[in-house]
């Protein structure tokens, strides 16, 4: 897969718009200010991508969604354990520290957050491009980052050594309410072609 710098910039911009929307949705949900980092679109080896987020053995909660429609891709939301617990307490209106390990309820809260963020992310891209993006119901797991990330890539049915990673982080305004999240989008090749076409960018510009 080869992509020009121009196309990379566009992916980054699309990432910004989508993630901006998702962060607004998260801020509404938490009724708190949510910061986002400028998304980075990069081609990375699998292990580079994993090391960027944490490390192979870092315990994380990972929500995995598949986008169908015109832009087939896999979307991952990755929270470290304290952030996932903080998220659950915030959303259930509990005192901080109530949740120390995720149970069934906790998992469904985190999954729902994944749903909401993906809805606003894909909504923004659909508005911009006129393309149809259909998010699947999410699946979730708590385990080592390497195990979850590699499994997600393997299950996407795409076997190149490098993955295109549009990555960003969210974090809350105060340390007390700190919720760190990584958003990863792994688009398939045809997804990129359609995205560029819809935006009127020639394939080989």
């Amino acid at each position: 897969m080869s992509i020009s710098n121009n196309e990379m910039d566009i992916l980054q911009e699309i990432g910004s718009i989508g993630v901006g929307n998702a962060a607004t949705a998260l801020a509404d949900l938490l009724q708190a200010k949510v910061n986002i980092s400028v998304p980075r679109a990069t081609f990375l080896d699998l292990e580079e991508a994993i090391n960027l987020i944490g490390g192979l053995e870092q315990p994380v909660v990972c929500v995995n969604l598949k986008l169908d429609g015109d832009v087939p891709a896999t979307v991952l939301y990755i929270f470290d354990q304290p952030s996932a617990c903080a998220l659950v307490d915030l959303l259930l209106g509990q005192a901080r520290g109530t949740t120390t390990a995720l149970d069934e309820m906790g998992y469904s809260v985190v999954m729902e957050v994944g749903n909401i963020l993906t809805g606003s992310f894909t909504g923004a891209i659909a508005n911009l491009t006129g393309l149809r993006l259909v998010p699947s119901v999410p699946v979730l797991a708590y385990d080592m980052l390497g195990a979850l990330f590699a499994t997600s890539v393997a299950a996407s049915g795409y076997a190149d050594d490098q993955v295109l990673c549009i990555q960003t982080s969210f974090w809350g305004n105060q340390d007390r309410d700190r919720v760190d999240s990584h958003f990863i989008m792994l688009p398939e090749v045809e997804a990129l072609d359609r995205l560029f076409q819809a935006l009127g960018v020639a394939a080989d510009s």
């Binding site: 999954m111 119901v137 699946v139 393997a154």
Partner: peptide, 20 residues
């Protein structure tokens, strides 16, 4: 060869561990 994700019927499609 674990099945890492659970949650719906898609999890079964993702059972790539067993095939590995």
């Amino acid at each position: 060869g674990a099945q890492m994700f659970f949650g719906n019927s898609r999890a079964a499609e993702m059972a790539i561990g067993e095939r590995n």
